[in-house]
Design a binder for these strands. Structure first.
Length: 706
DNA sequence: GAGCACTGC
């Protein structure tokens, strides 16, 4: 280990925090019961459950909790750790799973009152984590959540004037930074799970760095910054934070033995099925398997294969559980149900099982080594979904899922040599996503985008494309030296894509704010339709009653309106093949957006059945998402279109207008997705001359393509 | 006539 790093904790070979040493050696991953059983359940089941167990947790006898605390590795090095925190204003703490860093370090700081008159905040990339960790810490401190310990996530702020330790999502702290870029309420900011490199944490790194500097210069209360992470690219982080000290904490996990494929696998799905059955016949029936695959379709295919082969194979009975984010909650729950003794559980999961949820009792991980990744092309505005090789970090993370409860094994369906040539870390999200929302946020927080310190800077073209869009939306006054306009300031107060906040701010002009709020809420949420493979025909038949001849946007509005009117919503959703969770979420988003509109004194109005008004209003934000027909006379799905950026695109077969004949001359789409072809998703027909009326500047720029 | 990995405000 490099001598410039100090180390705290027990000594052994995993001290330096990297588990990438020997490809076939066992790695040290282990589980400390950070959370009581009820809380772990709620981690898995999501937020709804966490509310229900709150009382139970707070009342739990705190003796057990104190006992568990004292056993955590971080507790044993408490004195030295506090000394380092006292001495340094910025530091990096590398703590492996089970070190107790997230729950204990904020408490230790508070016990010593190192935060002074300010607050200690801890960011998390996921809301469920922010909530459950706050509950846990409140229980350990023998207080109710919302008192000394609180949390703040979207739609829910459980804090009070007495709160000194606050857990929140990184996105939430970022929104706070717009109103107060110096984050002056806080004296200690802990950025946890930094290795995940979400756009929000990457931006927060820069925000806290600038805040720290400015607070120093103005001699207002100093800011301590602690960056916490599991294994990560320490040198990159350390360079970024001006060579600050790095401290390593021991983790406590069970060893996981890694096996690599001896030869390259041509077909990882096939290899996965083979490996499953090889292990099935050679391992005890009570050992559960976790298989990492890329998506729903693949999971369904492998599940089918397993069931077919299982019929002709001897061996213990098998229960196969699919797990991906789009699966209805009730089916997701199957994963946590215990199987009868002598039955093997095989979980087929996407990346959701890599960090977001934890499945207990997994003994064997089968890692196909591939991930499905979304990326964005600034030139065409299209997003791409590609299956590609994962990083080494992802490989270790996946393997670690086998060592949560007991020693385990991980089978990699790629060679050790293939593993070693993979990138150490995944591409940070900020290099893969549209930048307009982030750039608007930065400008609103008073930051100069061109000099803002980022660990990884996106390509210049990408930044320029986003600045150009913001200029055309009217959010900033120039691309070269961007300053927020009055409209831009208003746009930045909405927690949504600036294209959509422009739609809401234009809505009073078109007399359709009621409808715009509903539509934007739905567009800002996940898919509201639930189409199970085996009942597709029926689902499509039921959908027909909502379909509008103008296209998908008004169809979505019709569904949302009907949902609001329905009395037994859950039942109604089931009957209509709709996703209750996502519709409820959209409903909550609408409430939040409405409150912001009221604060901005926007006139609430309805366009009734004059849906043209709503579509024109939508065009005021989505003008760059137009496409024009290039195939007069060709019927329906065969129609070819060309987008504003000049690329060819087709209507997605799931679009309401897919079969329209003749094909509409002009379209407005929500998303451009490149898979086998470039498809427009969520599409409505518009009048070609609307663009000239609604967004004349853009229309001029784009005329060449028409 | 195809299919959407995962978070978050």
């Amino acid at each position: 280990m490099d001598s410039k790093y100090c180390s705290i904790g027990l000594t052994n070979e995993t001290k330096n925090g990297f588990k990438r040493k020997k490809p076939t050696a066992s790695i040290c991953v282990k589980k400390v019961k950070l959370l009581s059983d009820s809380i772990s359940n709620c981690l898995q089941n999501g937020h709804e459950v966490s509310k229900n167990i709150e009382t139970h947790v707070v009342k739990k006898n705190s003796d057990d909790l104190q006992e568990a605390r004292r056993k955590l590795p971080v507790f044993m090095v408490r004195g030295r750790l506090l000394e380092e925190i006292r001495k340094n204003n910025t530091m990096i703490i590398i703590g492996e799973t089970g070190s107790g860093k997230t729950t204990q370090i904020p408490q230790m700081i508070h016990e010593q009152r190192l935060e002074g008159t300010g607050l200690i905040v801890v960011t998390q990339p996921r809301r469920v984590a922010a909530i459950t960790i706050a509950l846990r810490v409140a229980a350990e401190m023998n207080t109710e959540v919302g008192n000394i310990v609180g949390y703040s996530v979207r739609f829910e702020d459980v804090t009070s004037p007495r709160t000194k330790v606050k857990y929140l999502t990184d996105g939430m702290l970022l929104r706070e930074a717009i109103l107060d870029p110096l984050l002056s309420k806080y004296s200690v900011i802990i950025l946890d799970e930094a290795h995940e490199r979400t756009v929000s944490t990457d931006i927060l790194f820069g925000i806290v760095k600038l805040a720290q500097k400015e607070r120093n210069e103005k001699t207002i209360n100093p800011l301590k910054v602690i960056v916490m992470s599991a294994t990560m690219d320490v040198d990159t982080f350390r360079n970024y934070f001006d060579s600050c000290p790095v401290i390593y904490l021991e983790g406590r996990t069970h060893p996981v033995t890694i096996y690599h494929s001896k030869t390259k696998q041509e077909d990882y799905q096939y290899a996965a099925v083979c490996t499953i059955f090889q292990l099935h016949t050679t391992t005890p029936a009570d050992d559960d398997f976790l298989v990492f695959l890329t998506g729903q379709e693949e999971i369904e295919a492998v599940m089918y294969n397993i069931k077919q082969i299982a019929k002709e194979t001897t061996g213990p009975p098998i229960r196969v559980c699919p797990l991906y984010a789009g699966l209805p909650p009730a089916q997701q729950m199957q994963v946590w149900k215990e199987t009868p003794p002598g039955t093997r559980k095989i979980v087929l999961a996407t990346n959701i099982a890599e960090a977001s949820v934890t499945i207990p009792r997994i003994k064997c991980v089968i890692d196909t080594g591939v991930v499905k990744e979304r990326s964005w092309c600034s030139a065409t505005g299209a997003e791409r979904l590609v299956v590609r090789s994962g990083s080494q970090a992802a490989g270790w993370q996946r393997a670690g899922r086998a060592g949560r409860t007991a020693p385990g094994a991980a089978y990699r369906l790629y060679t050790a040599q293939q593993f070693n040539t993979r990138p150490l870390h995944p591409t940070p999200e900020i290099l893969r996503c549209p930048l307009a929302p982030t750039i608007l946020l930065l400008i609103a927080a008073g930051v100069e985008p061109s000099t803002f310190p980022l660990i990884d800077s996106p390509p210049r073209d990408s930044v320029t494309a986003s600045l150009t869009l913001l200029k055309e939306l009217g959010a900033i006054d120039s691309v070269e030296n961007p300053k927020l306009t009055v409209l831009g300031r208003k746009m930045s107060s909405f927690p949504i894509d600036p294209k959509y906040s422009k739609v809401l701010l234009s809505a009073p002009e078109y007399g359709c704010l009621e409808e715009a709020l509903s539509l934007v809420a739905v567009l800002s949420s996940e898919n509201i339709f639930y189409t199970p493979m085996h009942k597709r025909e029926e689902a499509l038949k039921v959908k027909r009653k909502f379909i509008s001849p103008t296209g998908d946007h008004i169809t979505l509005l019709n569904v949302f309106k009907a949902f609001c009117k329905a009395t037994l919503k859950k039942q109604w959703c089931k009957e209509n093949y709709l996703n209750h969770r996502n519709l409820t979420y959209a409903y909550e988003v609408r409430q939040q957006l409405l409150a912001i509109c009221q604060r901005l004194n926007l006139t609430l109005s309805s366009c009734g059945s004059a849906t043209d008004q709503l579509l024109k209003c939508l065009l005021s934000g989505l003008f760059s998402n137009c496409a024009w027909s290039r195939s007069a006379g060709v019927a329906g799905g065969g129609a070819r279109y060309v987008t504003g950026a000049g690329g060819a695109a087709s209507l997605h077969p799931a679009a309401a207008l897919h079969a329209a004949s003749p094909p509409p001359p002009a379209l407005l789409y929500t998303e451009l997705l490149h898979t086998r072809r470039t498809y427009m998703i969520t599409v409505s027909a518009i009048q070609p001359h609307w663009l000239q009326q609604v967004a004349p500047d853009y229309a001029r720029r784009c005329r060449a393509y028409r």
